[in-house]
Design a binder for these strands. Structure first.
Length: 285
DNA sequence: ACACTGCCCTGCGAGC
DNA sequence: TGCTCGCAGGGCAGTG
């Protein structure tokens, strides 16, 4: 499932291809893929505008239009955003089964949105409504502002660490894969109340988050099943995962102890009980 | 403030 | 082989 590194990889591949292209059509093949506004309004706003840039905010791909409007695309679990040069490849008229939306671009190109599970969402924000993005999305973990002090403020609440790190309103872009990996790297138990972390633990967690995300971006993202870059290439970071997706009982890559698997916020969570002890565990030693 | 449930969806692997 | 079932999960609404 695409998280920050996958979305960033897609952004990087799409930016040079989309910038300067004019949107000349928007075709919707699954109605709910467009979250808002209504299709006719969305078409009216985007058709005829030019893509001025491709940004990322959290897990959102953001197409900046020269009108000042923004098209945001959330891939959720199985969304794929593929660029196709219609001059080279045949047009997507054959209604492939998982194709949900088509941006027709001039000259001679298409941006295709595929999504098997139909959870992905495309939205259009105006200059006025785009401010709400920053109230629903928290700090960017790869921005300079994501300091140990900034993270310490976020952690200043009695909430389970993993649940907090997954909260997009606090930190934007982390999902199940990279939260598990970052907690493993920082040797922190996913159920630790966030406000029990010491100063050095906060610093280690910040470093772990930045390292895990940066490494994944360098590897062009994690491809477990569906994820592909904007040009259809899989990533390589799946080979660097230490805990995510590993079955319970499989050996920890660091200490050899059997990994544990629990559920946190309805999400499977894998960690090493030896490397990532609870506070109670540490006191009992 | 926090945790939990159910919903949206489909493909896949396990079990029978 | 062919079926059913549980699981995967990001975000959100609703409940406790």
């Amino acid at each position: 499932m695409p998280e920050l590194p996958e979305v960033e990889t897609i952004r990087r591949t799409l930016e040079p291809l989309l910038t300067g292209k004019r949107i000349q059509s928007f075709e919707l093949l699954w109605a709910r893929t467009l979250a808002f506004p209504a299709l006719t309004d969305a078409r009216h706003s985007m058709i005829g505008t030019t893509i001025a840039g491709v940004r990322r905010r959290g897990k959102l791909v953001v197409l900046e239009l020269d009108s000042g409007d923004l098209i945001t695309i959330h891939l959720r679990m199985t969304g794929e955003l593929l660029y196709r040069d219609a001059g080279i490849l045949p047009r997507a008229t054959e209604r492939e089964p998982y194709l949900r939306a088509i941006f027709g671009l001039s000259p001679c190109a298409e941006l295709l949105f595929y999504d098997t599970r139909k959870f992905g969402r495309i939205s259009l924000y105006t200059r006025e409504t785009s401010a709400s993005l920053d109230t629903t999305l928290g700090i960017e973990p790869l921005d300079a502002g994501f300091t140990t002090a900034a993270l310490a403020i976020i952690l200043r609440r009695e909430r389970r660490l993993k649940s907090l790190l997954l909260d997009q309103q606090l930190i934007a872009g982390l999902g199940n894969i990279y939260v598990d990996e970052a907690l493993f790297a920082a040797r922190l138990h996913p159920l630790r109340p966030a406000n029990t972390l010491g100063e050095s633990e906060v610093a280690e967690l910040r470093t772990a988050i930045v390292d895990v995300l940066s490494t994944a971006i360098a590897g062009h993202g994690t491809t477990l099943r569906d994820y592909r870059s904007g040009l259809g290439e899989p990533g390589t970071n799946q080979h660097r995962l230490h805990v995510y997706g590993k079955p319970a009982g499989s050996p920890c890559s660091r200490c050899g102890a059997p990994l544990a698997r629990i559920s946190v916020d309805q999400r499977s969570t894998t960690f090493c009980p030896e490397c990532q002890p609870t506070v109670a565990h540490m006191l009992n030693r």
